[in-house]
């Protein structure tokens, strides 16, 4: 089932065009990472899904229901975590969640039960002080609790980890991947390692366009860079080896750095043995022969070029 569908969305502020023709679908149980540079239009896209901004053109549907700007019905199926969530500082976490639950129309009994579960999940179960003394990480965790309170079908997180320290980030990611077992999650970020860690689907947003969308493992194998890195024991024979490698017709480029040479070639599987043969023939003191994995970073840099 399609939980979220954006259909040819455009958005401009005055003359500045922020989103140009954005279409994407998020299905049930997917953990969708929306990647983009700062200013790529991630937050704008999310705010339009929540009805906080009006698209200049196009249609957004949440669980099949159309999103109307200024109306809030569709938000009942959505849990939202902004990049810096703002709470009422004079409330305790329990009071805040109670307010949220009542707004969402939940029964008191249900709210009490969910509040306990969620505060335990995010590690705030025994915190009874007022929110205004909370650290950023604690606020972020409370933010996740409030987003999951009404068991939403879709959880939207806007850069949930950007402002946190490494421990805080790990905690948030762990909680999100746990939550992902029950709901679809759209998660925007510019931290690629976060996406690699928890997402199964990605979309790369660049200058208001979705330049790439799909399964993370498919994308990685499609964008495999075909690079081999050879590390020798010392720097002496490296440049000679590089020259010899360059003579192969299938090698497009070599790069020497200290005692290692990086070779870009067409078809590692097909021609790799020829490199190995060369290494044996030359009796090069090889420390390491490595066919490099493509990282999301390579993919990202390639598509937003």
């Amino acid at each position: 089932m399609e939980i979220l569908k954006l259909d040819h969305i455009q958005k401009s502020f005055g003359k500045l065009s922020v989103i140009q023709d954005l279409s994407l679908t998020v299905s049930e149980h997917s953990l969708f990472g929306l990647i983009g540079k700062n200013g790529a239009g991630k937050t704008t896209a999310m705010k339009m899904v929540l009805g906080f901004l009006q698209p200049s053109r196009g249609e957004i549907r949440v669980c099949g229901e159309k999103v109307t700007y200024g109306k809030t019905q569709t938000n009942r199926s959505i849990g939202y975590l902004p990049d810096v969530p703002e709470f009422y500082g004079y409330m305790t976490p329990k009071e805040y969640l109670k307010l949220c639950g009542r707004i969402a129309g939940q029964k008191p009994e249900q709210i009490r039960k969910r509040t306990e579960e969620l505060l335990t999940l995010v590690g705030l179960a025994n915190v009874n002080r007022k929110i205004h003394g909370f650290s950023r990480g604690m606020k972020q965790r409370l933010g996740i609790a409030q987003a999951l309170l009404s068991e939403p079908k879709l959880l939207i997180c806007d850069e949930p980890t950007s402002a946190l320290d490494p421990i805080g980030r790990k905690e948030i990611l762990d909680i999100l991947s746990l939550a992902g077992q029950q709901t679809a999650i759209v998660f925007s970020t510019h931290i690629l390692s976060d996406v690699e860690r928890i997402c199964n689907q990605i979309g790369i947003l660049d200058q208001g366009r979705l330049v790439l969308q799909g399964d993370i493992s498919d994308i990685k194998s499609t964008y495999r860079p075909d690079t081999v890195r050879i590390e020798l024991a010392g720097p002496s024979g490296v440049s000679v080896l590089a020259e010899k490698l360059q003579d192969f017709p299938f090698v497009s480029a070599t790069e020497v750095k200290e005692n290692a040479v990086t070779v870009r070639l067409a078809g590692v599987e097909k021609h790799g043995h020829k490199i190995l043969e060369l290494l044996v023939r030359e009796q090069s003191p090889v420390l390491k022969y490595e066919v490099q994995e493509s990282s999301l970073e390579d993919v990202f840099l390639e598509v937003v070029k």
Partner: peptide, 15 residues
Amino acid sequence: TKGTLVLPISKGLSR
């Protein structure tokens, strides 16, 4: 200004 209304409204509170 503070943005405290964002969460309640994202929960379906009508404006």
